[in-house]
Amino acid sequence: MNAEQPTIPRIWVFVEQQEHQVHPVSWELLGAAKRLSADLPGSVVEAVLLGHQVADLAPQAFQYGASRVYLIDHPVLEIYRNMPYAVAVSQLVTEYRPEIFLIGATTLGRDLAGSIATRVGTGLTADCTELSIDPANHILAATRPTFGGNLMATILCRRHRPQMATVRPRVLPMPEPVPDATGEVVHVPFDMREEDVPVKRLRLIRAEEQPNIEYADVIVAGGRGVGGPEGFALLQELADALGGMVAASRPVVDAGWMDASRQVGQTGKTVRPKLYIAAGISGAVQHRVGMSGADVILAINTDPNAPIFQIATLGIVGDLYEVIPALIREVKGQSYDGQAHL
């Protein structure tokens, strides 16, 4: 960057779309970019959107806070492949020189971010849980857990630009969209022939629809204390009564009682429900990093010293096989008028 000439600090967010669906982490990142922008004088929040025939997705980016969308629309970008995406985005970065560039730490985002950072020769901090602007020097302070969540490290990228970071879905809150927000679409030309792309997708073997616990409002999670797969039927009953989903700690998944897609924690999913009920979960740090963003945590554990109680809104020392059935009865028996708790 030309040091003499002050340029507008651009905060960029990669809008991840596949099959015309935008991954909600993109909006969470736009929300974060807006907050960063408030602390970075003169900065603007902008979005990068790639794909084929995806221009109609741009207005959503405006609603979530982007003032401008850089759109690269090209047939080779129809499905995500590392090379054309990395080349296209890197060209854009080289041309517009953003100050900060945020990407979702999804399968796609993790594949892409490292390639872009290497191409443009800059620093990248993976899986951040907190982003802020250092008030002294206006650089990005990207905080991430290391050593299995036992230690938090704040990473700085002092001299190289853009300062890149990835953030997992649900680590940051979802902003409210502004319905009538508008902005500018910059159509960016891109030149690549299909013959020059070394990787082709032959087919996609679709998995059964995976339970998406990340965006559930209510989660009833069970740990090793549930004792076996049968006990999860009870948790499912409570989850159904509350309109929620069942999740699990890692030992439960390792034992095969529940599918890996339901694991919460460092090596599982990050969740932010309104209500998280933890039954028979001790509350190891690797589990807590995945659920401490819940609004309300209700923990049930026989051990009064279980670490989960340190973060629970309400802790119940007791046998889950006594407490959960009583809760189910109460929830099912409770008559709501549909208004009282809005």
């Binding site: 704040t154 990473i155 401490s292 009064p304 340190q310 020392v317």
Partner: peptide
């Protein structure tokens, strides 16, 4: 390009009351 600015142990979210059956 990246350096560790600071490292610290995470401060846990503060819990509420613990009651027993």
């Amino acid at each position: 390009p990246t350096v560790v600015g600071k490292a610290y142990t995470p401060s846990p979210r503060s819990g509420g009351e613990v009651i027993s059956v």
